[in-house]
Amino acid sequence: MLDASSPFDRLPNKPGVGYKPQHFAEIMEDPGPVAWLEIHAENYMGAGGRPLAQMRALAERFAISVHGVGLSIGGEGRLDPEHLARLKHLIGWLKPASFSEHLAWSTHDSHFLNDLLPLPYTAATLARVCDHIDEVQEVVGRQMLLENPSTYLAFSESDMLEVDFLSEIATRTGCGLLFDVNNVFVSATNQQTDPLSYIDAFPLDKVGEIHLGGHDEDEDDHGATLLIDSHGKPVVDPVWALYDHTIARGGAKPTLIEWDNDVPEWPVLAAEAARAETALAQLAQ
């Protein structure tokens, strides 16, 4: 397999999108406001074929962010050494501008559950997550970014705030953070907390990338609003407002539009990226 070796060593402070193969031709022809692309690591862990060939072509022109969804950093068990080796191989092959994963777990006892499952925020889980991040950064040989989760419930055993939990992880491990503004909005709605306070308490100086995405709306057992992080719709106005607040406070950051389900035609996705571009441009004035 020829080395893909992207020449870009960092993500620009511009809009990016989650890459979908159906958009390949349009992106190569005219990416519009889209300056970089993010891929889910697991989709590029095959041995060859079209996925890797497309990535080799895209990596010559765009900074690439590798975003893992299957490492289970919050898992009680040890990290899967095979999966870690696959990740190391992919990152060595592609040399992406950024690598990120989630504050979540997805594997238990070799069962992979294909969802980002929640963690209690305690000293014990903090120590475990930090150990796993240390291991990832050592094996992969580079800094990673850790993303704040969308949550739907709380653990009665939690005795730390999520924002303090993430800050402490970044301090202890030296990892950076990926700030998902839609996740902030979804979790704050679901946990009935204030998203602005969360943003104001967040160590934005450690944020290497921002995510924006859409969500669905439901109700819990007591009729309270329950937002679901579905990545299948446009970003809603309240999330754009929180994004403006975030970059006003933390400065311009690489900003990703995440749209993974019911993926729209390219112009729709590019229009979302253009909206982020406008927000970033207004900040510069």
Binding site: M45, G70, T107, S110
Partner: peptide
Amino acid sequence: HPPSSALMM
């Protein structure tokens, strides 16, 4: 038969 790896492919 839940998945035994994160490679959904």
